[in-house]
Simulated assay, not measured.
Amino acid sequence: MDTAKPLILITNDDGVSAPGLRALIAVMAEIGDVLVVAPDKPQSGMGHAITTNSTLYLNKISKETDSIQEYSCSGTPVDCVKLAVNEILKRKPDLCVSGVNHGSNSSINVIYSGTMSAAVEAGIEGIPAIGFSLLDYDWNADFETMKPFIRKITLEVLENSLPKGVVLNVNFPKLTQENIKGIKICRQAKARWVEKFDKRQTPQGRDYYWLAGEFVNQDKGEDTDEWALGNGYISVVPVQFDLTAHYATQELNTWKWNE
Rank of each mutant, 00 (worst) to 15 (best):
D198R: 11
L168F: 07
D136K: 02
G126A: 05
W210V: 14
L168S: 03
F241K: 02
P173D: 00
Y137N: 13
K190T: 12
Y208A: 01
N171M: 05
D142K: 11
A141T: 08
E214N: 13
Q188C: 12
L211N: 11
G131E: 09
V166T: 15
V157S: 02
G205N: 04
Q188E: 14
Q201P: 02
L158A: 01
D138V: 09
N179L: 10
E226H: 06
G131W: 08
G131A: 15
E226Y: 05
D142M: 05
V166W: 03
P148W: 04
W227P: 00
E156Q: 14
V157I: 07
I130Y: 01
Q188Y: 03
A212K: 15
L162K: 02
E226P: 03
N140H: 12
S235I: 02
I185Y: 13
L175W: 00
D223L: 06
P238E: 10
T145G: 05
G131C: 08
E144F: 07
C186V: 10
Y208D: 07
T176R: 12
D198A: 09
D225F: 03
L135V: 09
Y208W: 12
I183N: 02
T176M: 09
F149E: 06
R187G: 12
V157T: 06
W139R: 13
P128V: 11
K196Q: 10
Q201D: 07
L243S: 11
N231A: 07
L211S: 13
F132Q: 01
Y233W: 14
E156F: 08
K196C: 14
G205Q: 04
I183K: 07
K147W: 07
L135S: 12
I180A: 07
V236I: 13
L162M: 07
F215Y: 13
P203R: 10
F215D: 06
E144D: 14
N169C: 12
M146H: 05
I150W: 00
